[in-house]
Amino acid sequence: MGGRFGDGAVVPEPEGEVWHEEWHPRALAVTLAAGALGAWNIDVSRHAREALRPPDYARFSYYEKWLAALADLLVARDVVSPGELSGAAEPSQSPLAAKKLQAADVPAALARGGPADRPGGPDPAFGPGDAVRTRPFSENRMVEGGHTRMPAYAAGRVGRILRRHGTHVLPDASAHDLGDRPEPLYAVAFPAAALWAHPEHPGDEVVLDLWQSYLEPA
């Protein structure tokens, strides 16, 4: 939705305010705990949120998107059955139960994280200062309608490489169980005037992290 018009003001809030509804912390925690079962990766879960019906995506609050995507994923990955989800069927013990995140392991699991850099992959084709053009569409090239991290507002635009980030998992593949397919990842700077018809200031820039296959020499 980067660049979209009509959304109104951004409303600041005090620093101590972590949750906004009583059910928010539980929604976050159950999503993280279910993710820890290892039945999907972070790209699959992002795609599940994006794959909600557009009216649902627009209407759901942030954590409502998480919950809906979690329910969809649990069924899609055969972790729960539709009958169990609706309450029509008695829940059966899951074979994944051995992977249940234990309370004692929570600090270590959260501290461990899940790095996205990988060894190997193609050699870097670009270096800092190189001019690049993004591919002309913000679609997944391997899977029609699939996940990508190329925002529509930056497709087909010319920028320059600001820095290299190493070699990272390609979400377009990872979100669809096509493996990590690691690629060089770059921070690419675009002048505001290359992105917007009415830039606020000629010196302003937007920087995006983009994978090598999203880019071509310009």
């Binding site: 925690a29 159950v30 972790v79 829940p91 139960a97 249940k100 309370a103």
Partner: peptide, 20 residues
């Protein structure tokens, strides 16, 4: 969701408390 996952042995409510 929490109740279902707990009954299936997939989520420990104490782990959710620890995350929060």
């Amino acid at each position: 969701l929490e109740t279902l996952l707990e009954r299936k042995g997939l989520v420990d409510p104490a782990a959710l408390d620890a995350i929060i």
